[in-house]
Amino acid sequence: MTLYLLLVAVVVAERLAELVTARRHRAWSLARGAREYGRGHYPAMVALHTALLVGCVVEPWAAHRPFVPLLGWSALAVAVAAQGLRWWCVAALGPRWNTRVLVVPGLPLVAAGPYRYLRHPNYVAVVAEGVALPLVHTAWLTALCFTVLNLVLLRVRIGCEDTALTEGGRLRAPASVPSAGAGA
């Protein structure tokens, strides 16, 4: 359990590094006239991700969850890969990456790095980590609860991002949504 607690502590440190990076990137974006979207769901996202980390510690301890080597080592590999994908996203977006939804006017959509292959690769990393990190030490209840709640939150978050990018002129509006000025 000690090594697992160390792993969770490393993930907590990584999250703190993300927040420092996001704060710096937020200042960069706002200085360039960025508009923020989705402030309403941001506290729920922070609470959910905090609950994931707390659950990763509490469930194995309180429920006496064992370390199951096949599951644990496989889940660790997925969790590490998720971190790699997350930081690949950060590197590809550069100062435009953030934990908040900020759109700087006039900047084109990023199509480099993992964004060449997926529209929302960071969320693939979030989903993979949300399942894998708890399962390293068989915290299946934490993995299940986080995954279900995260899917609900991601539906809101991805919709928010798509709206922000559509309004910012980077994505085309879906055919069912009339563009500004249509029909006038």
Rank of each mutant, 00 (worst) to 15 (best):
M1P: 05
M1F: 02
T2V: 03
Y4L: 00
L5S: 04
L6M: 06
V8Q: 03
V8R: 11
V12G: 04
L16H: 04
L16A: 08
A17R: 05
T21H: 06
T21G: 08
R23Q: 06
R26M: 00
R26Y: 03
A27P: 01
W28R: 00
W28P: 03
S29R: 08
A31F: 04
A31M: 03
R35V: 15
E36P: 07
Y37G: 06
G40C: 00
P43S: 12
P43T: 10
A44W: 13
M45F: 10
M45V: 12
M45P: 02
V46A: 03
V46L: 08
T50D: 00
T50R: 13
L52Y: 13
L53D: 15
L53Q: 14
V54R: 10
G55I: 14
C56S: 10
P60L: 02
A62H: 09
H64D: 11
P66Q: 07
P69S: 05
L71Y: 00
S74I: 06
S74Q: 01
A75K: 08
V80G: 02
A81C: 13
A82N: 02
R86T: 03
A92V: 11
A92S: 13
P95L: 11
R96Q: 15
W97C: 00
R100Q: 14
V101N: 07
V104T: 01
V104K: 08
P105W: 11
L107C: 14
L107H: 13
P108C: 02
P108H: 01
V110H: 14
A112K: 11
G113Y: 09
Y115Q: 01
Y115G: 01
Y117D: 02
Y117L: 13
Y117G: 04
N122M: 01
Y123K: 02
A125K: 03
A125E: 09
V127D: 02
V127A: 01
A128I: 09
A128M: 14
E129C: 01
A132R: 12
P134A: 08
V136H: 14
V136R: 04
H137D: 10
A139D: 12
W140Q: 04
W140E: 06
L141E: 09
T142Q: 05
C145K: 03
F146V: 04
T147G: 08
V152C: 03
L153H: 04
V156T: 00
R157C: 07
E161T: 12
E161H: 08
D162R: 15
T163L: 05
L165N: 15
T166N: 01
E167T: 14
G169L: 08
R172I: 01
A175Y: 12
S176L: 12
S179G: 15
S179K: 14
G181H: 10
